[in-house]
């Protein structure tokens, strides 16, 4: 089923911003609609403090490691997961990373998770922001580097959506024999989670629906359901919520039928071939984005609060689902 679109654009220092505009969206797909944390949230404060301490150390390390790492271009893989219309954000983030790292940064965009996974496997890219499901597939080849903090927690969910006018559906069990839109075969919330829900109901996801198809984007799943092409679809809660802020006229045409349990938020990973110094330097830059105005502004535009180091155990829930289908 690896038939996704193969539009590939590398965004590098050498390219002007307008060139980057042609593709971008990557970050948009990742980042939208994040609210600022309430100031009074002690836990957050504590976390921020801890991050700050860690960042200080990282900065020092980064400075020390700069010589060893040299000026090789950093290649950062971005997977499609969200909005298509914030090209400027991607360019700004790349510039931000370049300034912090002191090295040129190249974003490598692919339209399906599978392609980015292949690039990681082939070490054509050093870092990537991927979905949790691919992360578990690649667990032996990549290291967890950072996890976004979304609404104060490094978790997100899967939404089962139907068209807004479709009022009688209250559970996935009622969708038997209908047309269903998946996001990507390597998407957790857009593929694995709904199939797991059916599995738990004792249904065979392969035969439960009359027809299923992949849109290779969460946003397009929402559009497919809104337009009536699919009766229902499964979508990333982060994407739906963000889109509800950015383009409410689309989400208004859909209705959330059910919300899944929490899953670890799509992580930023580094290939195991990346040296420790380089790993820590990149991690440090990400974790400290909340510490300077430029970084804070970028995070706000991503609709996330901050990056935290994260723990592989956060993804155990996903691993359990995979196990149910004989994967992992």
């Amino acid at each position: 089923m690896d038939t996704g679109k193969r539009s590939t654009v590398a965004v590098s220092d050498a390219l002007p911003h307008s060139a980057a505009d042609g593709v971008t969206d990557w970050l948009l797909r990742r980042a939208c609609g994040l609210r600022r944390l309430p100031n009074g949230d002690l836990r957050t404060r504590r976390r921020v403090l801890r991050a700050a301490v860690a960042a200080f150390g990282e900065l020092w390390l980064a400075g020390a490691g700069r010589a060893a790492v040299g000026s090789r271009t950093v290649r950062f893989g971005l997977t499609p997961a969200f909005l298509h219309d914030q090209h400027g954000l991607l360019a700004d983030w790349r510039e931000y990373l370049r300034d912090k790292l002191g090295r040129p940064v190249e974003f490598v965009l692919r339209d399906s998770y599978r392609e980015t996974m292949d690039l990681l496997r082939l070490t054509k890219i050093d870092f990537a922001w991927i979905c949790d499901y691919p992360y578990l597939h690649l667990k032996d080849e990549v290291r967890l580097m950072a996890v976004p903090l979304y609404r104060g927690r490094p978790y997100y969910r899967s939404y089962l959506i139907v068209a807004a006018r479709n009022l009688h559906v209250s559970s996935i069990a009622q969708l038997k024999g209908n047309i269903f839109a998946y996001a990507d075969p390597y998407s957790n919330t857009g593929y694995l989670a709904p199939r797991y829900a059916l599995h738990r109901l004792g249904e065979n996801p392969e035969r439960f629906f009359r027809k299923t198809f992949f849109t290779y984007s969460h946003r397009k799943v929402i559009e497919a359901v809104a337009s009536g092409l699919a009766v229902a679809g499964a979508v990333d809660s982060y994407v739906w919520d963000s889109l509800a802020v950015v383009a409410p006229e689309i989400t208004r045409q859909t209705r959330i039928v059910s919300i899944s349990e929490e899953f670890g938020f799509p992580p930023l990973v580094a290939h195991r071939s990346v040296g420790d110094e380089e790993f820590r330097q990149m991690q440090g830059v990400l974790l400290n984005m909340g510490r300077d105005p430029g970084g804070r502004s970028l995070l706000a535009r991503f609709h996330i609060d901050a990056f935290i180091p994260g723990k592989p155990a956060m993804y155990d829930g996903v691993a359990r689902m995979m196990l149910a289908f004989g994967e992992g």
Partner: peptide, 9 residues
């Protein structure tokens, strides 16, 4: 041919 419904749409 590849049953890519979304692309056709």
């Amino acid at each position: 041919l590849h049953d890519n419904v979304w692309q056709a749409f």
